[in-house]
Write a protein that binds this DNA or RNA. Structure first.
Length: 487
RNA sequence: GGUUCCUUGACCGAGAGGCUAGGUAGCGGUCUGCAAAACCGUCAACAGCAGUUCGAAUCUGCUAGGAACCUCCA
């Protein structure tokens, strides 16, 4: 198999040629959400980024197993010593069973992802469903000597690990500095060093989410789930691990240490991280309280939003920036994306209606190759989109009967759009229910009547039809052949 | 304080030592009963300063401003 994809590996800080460990199989693990609140725009970024990678790898001929987890236990607020479990806190506030919270927000997350046309992963494991695996993983680390038990909890011994391996290779951190800076521990702590992190936490009396283990009744540490579940479903060594850049330290750094301690080597070949979405130049985040949920975008119900933005607009907006750059949210930028997207989808619709000629007089380029090269260059979706706009220009020119196109060129144009609309996951409205069909026919009928009115120069009637339809939200466009409309 | 990174035209956003990025907005035109759409043309940019080079937005240094991580965060 020919390898053409270059992808940026956080571990080396370089673009590397992607060569899977076991062709044609590709194993990909991506950190999913902690389900204690609605997904916001920031959550859409990794979901869409890795959705694109998932689609592109499949298109390139690989057999991909994509695992994206749901974190539903063990993710604490503040730090591992005094933080409360996020799920449990939400449950307490809402007077719900923790698993009710988990179920509720998992379903809402799925709805949002579906709206964004994010493909479901191959496996979507939950941390709470893999407690034995996590206990076993902690046990292995304990056996290898890189963890210690303290008061019913188990902690990873970062300082000891760092003597044999290097803690900090992913984030470029020098752990000696961290240890120096954080040596002041209050004597009460069970941890030897504040950099140590929990593999297993003993549950306090009032803690509801608890499982039995040889150390105590308790729950697993947050970093453990990804190591345990990733290697369970993808093997001891797998190709890709992804997530947001903010997870590099400590989460992914800890995962590397866990894997090296447990099985003797790193689990992941390519670490891939998407950048953040910012709002007024600042990271959008739950703890900063400056986030806008996806639902609020879809309905426009947030004070910073001038209007509602469709899921496809959001998706297109995100794809117009490279995944390793920050994207700054603004109404202006979203409106620009919205208009750009509709320009592209209109060109796609027109493409279906073009009748070919014997020869091609419109300027065409080898867009298929150009798009493939852009995708293979670290998933450069903004460049792919710019090529599609270029092709759209050609489509419009032909549609406007100002140039011609041959059957062969038309076919390759159709193939180009079909391919990349699919890879970028830009749905075109194809929902066709009985009601929708009848309604479309009714609008078509009205506009045919308007056309007749125009032909008999009854401007009053034709303008009335157009203006009234406009007041209901329809956009009517006259074309050489007749008319087009959209909502 | 430590580590990493960013600063591109009115706005968003690619690129990367010499070749028009693209989108949105603006301006002029073609088309049109009018409008919209479409098309054509057009404007305009690489934070500042100094250096390397035949040539720098792209490399180096400094200055200014901003961000992320170092605590939970996608």
């Amino acid at each position: 198999m020919e390898h053409q994809l270059y992808i940026h590996n956080t571990l080396s800080r370089k673009k590397e040629l992607f060569v899977p460990i076991k062709e044609p199989m590709v194993g990909m693990y991506v950190c999913g959400p902690t389900v204690y609140g609605d997904a916001h725009l920031g959550h859409a970024r990794p979901a869409i980024t890795f959705d694109i990678l998932f689609r592109w790898l499949k298109y390139s001929g690989y057999k991909v197993r994509y695992v994206r987890n749901i974190t539903d236990v063990g993710h604490l607020e503040h730090d591992a010593d005094d933080g409360e479990d996020k799920i449990e806190k939400k449950a307490r506030l809402e007077q719900l069973e923790p698993m009710e919270v988990v179920q509720h927000f998992t379903l809402r997350y799925h709805d949002a992802m579906k709206a964004l046309n994010v493909l479901p992963p191959s496996i979507e494991p939950r941390a709470s469903g893999h407690i034995p695996e996590q206990i076993e993983y902690a046990r292995k680390i304990l056996e290898s000597g890189f963890a210690y038990e303290s008061g019913g909890s188990v902690y990873f011994d970062v300082e000891k690990y760092n003597k044999h391996h290097r803690y900090g290779i992913l984030s470029g951190r020098n752990i000696d500095d961290i240890v120096e800076n954080t040596r002041s521990l209050d004597g009460q702590s069970e941890k030897r060093r504040s950099v140590d992190f929990a593999l297993w936490k003993k549950a306090s009396a009032e803690h509801i989410m608890r499982w039995h283990s040889e150390w105590s009744d308790g729950f697993p540490g947050w970093h453990l789930e990804c190591s345990a579940m990733g290697q369970k479903y993808l093997g001891e060594k797998f190709d890709i691990h992804g997530g947001g850049m903010d997870l590099i330290f400590p989460h992914h750094e800890c995962e590397i240490a866990q894997s090296v301690a447990a099985v003797g080597h790193q689990a992941v070949k390519y670490w891939i991280h998407n950048n953040m979405i910012t709002i007024n130049g600042q990271k959008m985040g739950k703890s900063l309280g400056n986030f806008i949920t996806l639902e609020e975008f879809f309905t426009g119900s947030h004070k910073l939003l001038d209007s509602a933005y469709s899921p496809m607009t959001i998706r297109f907006f995100i794809l117009q920036a490279h995944y390793r750059s920050t994207v700054d949210f603004s109404n202006e930028a979203l409106i620009a994306s919205q208009k750009g997207l509709s320009r592209l989808t209109e060109a796609y619709d027109r493409l279906q209606k073009i009748t070919p000629s014997v020869t091609t007089s419109v300027e065409t380029k080898d867009w298929a190759t150009m798009c493939r090269e852009a995708m293979n260059d670290d998933l450069n979706t903004p460049i792919v989109i710019s090529h599609l706009f270029d092709a759209a220009k050609a489509i419009n020119t032909v549609y406007d009967t100002k140039a011609t196109i041959s059957q062969a060129d038309l076919d390759s144009l159709k193939k180009l759009f079909d391919t990349y609309i699919d890879i970028l996951g830009l749905q075109t409205e194809q929902s066709s229910s009985k009601y929708l069909d009848s309604y479309k026919k009714a609008v078509d009928l009205l506009l045919s009547l308007r056309l007749e009115a125009k032909q008999s120069k009854n401007w009053a009637l034709s303008d009335r039809i157009r203006d009234e339809l406009a007041s209901y939200g329809f956009v009517v466009k006259d074309t050489k052949e007749g008319f087009e409309w959209s909502l």
